[in-house]
Design a protein around this nucleic acid. Structure first.
Length: 477
RNA sequence: GGCGGCAUGGCCAAGUGGUAAGGCAGAGCUCUGCAAAAGCUCGAUCCCCAGUUCGAAUCUGGGUGCCGCCUCCA
């Protein structure tokens, strides 16, 4: 079964046909001048899952994500704080990576920085000048949008219409109001690099063209970013890259929707941000990922203070089920065996569940639907366990169920918080011993003592449940 | 003014032609020393209007409302 992806460029879902041995992915990174917020977490988690899913499907990927570490915002912020702009950017670049690590996002293969690629950028600008796409005025270099007939093809706009909506003062040096800076002449006290046009620095947009060309070549597979980047950023990237190479830049353009706070886009300029570090203090990363993946990546996502509490209950059930399975499987020696009756039915449901999960993900990475499949599966596993005899242990069907949850929910989605991680190796057998003793007490109707054990363990965040299948412990999240 | 997107039960959210996944909340029941967990049962005709079709939440046209982009933004 092929994978279909919605392509912003064509407005259609298209079949994935990977070129080369690895799928080339370029995702526009951040401008590091303040803390990483939830709006950054969304594309990162989404691309993390897309990559992990592609790996699961047998593809290899090569993922490049830039840091735009020189820019007006950085310079302004650095001046406010009276620090060096380059150091400020380096600080927030690290902060970004730390936040992503804390969210369980696998790192990109490369994180190139603009300030370390000035020569590449200059070479690209020179090429654009040679090819008649750019012109020099007073130490600035501008891209001429009229030189690129396809300008507007990604955002589906015509140059005249865009011009009509222009709401800002036009630089008198520009030949056309929509022309944009490739190279900005240095102002006093700003970081600047030497160039054929004098001291200056790169404009916004050109870095992505230069970096994607350098590390992925003139043509690659996926180009991603937030939908707020479609215009002008990605439109300008296409104009630059395709103007320079004459080849189509990316095969598939993927854009994620915004995260809204009180029905308004979360963004640094609006100041309504919730930082990743802040939210990780209150909630586990797996829950945050679950929340993000519960919506399709292209739709808007509403966030508010109670949002994670609202979704935590369902997430907890999923986790409980997987952790129960993990403990059952861990305690039994499980060999492949022919199954019959309910066990065979469960094994079949698991097979179908995997197929449905895959079908959901193949359809433009529909993680919301895929999570629905996981809940269906959860339901069948719980029903199966509920019917087990008191002392029955895991069988091969439950083993398969565990493997599947571990792979899909744990591995690809990263939404399972395993209890083992919170216990050292020694305490698990001790807990089991305690439960054993408590069971003995209960059978002798020493309920006060039994309850005391349960209460005291609860104080330690260990929850005891006396199920028909025997007592269980779990860690309260 | 232009471009793009969204509108599904109390809340969240899938579903793009064949008669509404899933989650949360709520109600009842089972199990049970208690607590918890789990299981079973119960809910919508899909913003409005008009069309196309044997058949539409899904297609077309027209409204209404909301969001994003057109300035930095994931």
């Amino acid at each position: 079964m092929p994978i279909y992806i919605y392509n912003t460029l064509t407005g259609k879902k298209e079949k994935l046909t990977g070129s080369g041995e690895a799928i080339g992915i370029y995702v526009c990174g951040v401008t590091p001048y303040s803390d990483t917020h939830l709006g950054h977490a969304r594309p990162s988690v989404v691309w993390d899952v897309i990559k992990k899913y592609l790996h699961y499907r047998g593809y290899q990927t090569f993922h490049v994500q830039n840091f735009t570490d020189i820019d007006d915002k950085i310079i302004n912020r650095a001046q406010e704080l009276e620090v060096d702009p380059v150091q400020l950017a380096a600080h927030y670049s690290n902060e970004y990576l730390e936040s992503m690590d804390a969210l369980g996002v696998a790192r990109a293969d490369l994180y190139p920085k603009v300030t370390e690629h000035i020569p590449d950028i200059i070479t690209l600008i020179e090429r654009l000048i040679e090819r008649g796409h750019a012109y020099v005025v007073n130490g600035n270099v501008f891209y001429s949008v009229l030189s690129f007939p396809e300008y507007g093809k990604l955002s589906n706009q015509k140059i005249e219409q865009l011009q009509a909506g222009t709401r800002f003062e036009v630089d008198p040096d520009k030949k056309h109001p929509l022309d944009f800076a490739l190279w900005k002449k240095a102002k006093p006290n700003e970081p600047a690099w030497d160039s054929p046009w004098g001291k200056g620095r790169p404009g916004w947009h050109i870095e992505c063209s230069a970096l994607s060309y350098k590390y992925l070549g003139p043509e690659f597979d996926f180009h991603g970013g937030g939908c707020d980047l479609i215009f002008p950023h990605h439109e300008n990237e296409i104009a630059q890259s395709e103007g320079a190479t004459g080849k189509p830049l990316a095969k598939y353009w993927l854009h994620n929707g915004m995260i809204n706070l009180k029905q308004e886009k979360m963004s640094k300029s609006l100041g309504n941000i919730v930082t990743v570090k802040e939210i990780l203090k209150a909630y586990p990363k797996e829950l945050i990922r679950f929340f993000i993946l519960s919506n399709h990546y292209r739709s808007e996502l509403e966030f508010h203070d109670q949002k994670l509490d609202e979704v935590s209950r369902g997430w907890q059930r999923l986790n409980d089920c997987v952790n129960v399975l993990a403990k059952m499987v861990d305690k039994a020696k499980i060999e492949p065996e022919p199954l019959s009756g309910d066990a065979a039915a469960l094994a079949e449901a698991i097979r179908q569940g995997e197929a449905r999960f895959t079908a959901a993900m193949d359809d433009d990475f529909n993680t919301a639907l895929a999570i629905g499949v996981l809940f269906d599966l959860l339901h069948q596993v719980n029903a199966y366990i509920a019917k087990l005899d008191h002392k029955a242990s895991a069988d091969y069907a439950l083993y398969q169920a565990y493997q599947l949850f571990a792979t899909l929910a744990g591995g690809i989605f990263g939404i399972i918080k395993t209890d083992e991680h919170k216990l050292s190796g020694l305490s698990e057998p001790l807990l089991d011993l305690l439960l054993e003793l408590r069971t003995e007490l209960r059978s002798q109707k020493h309920y006060q003592l039994a309850d005391r054990i349960r209460d005291r363990l609860a104080e330690l965040n260990v929850v005891i449940e006396d199920t028909p299948q025997g007592p269980r412990w779990k860690i309260r999240s």
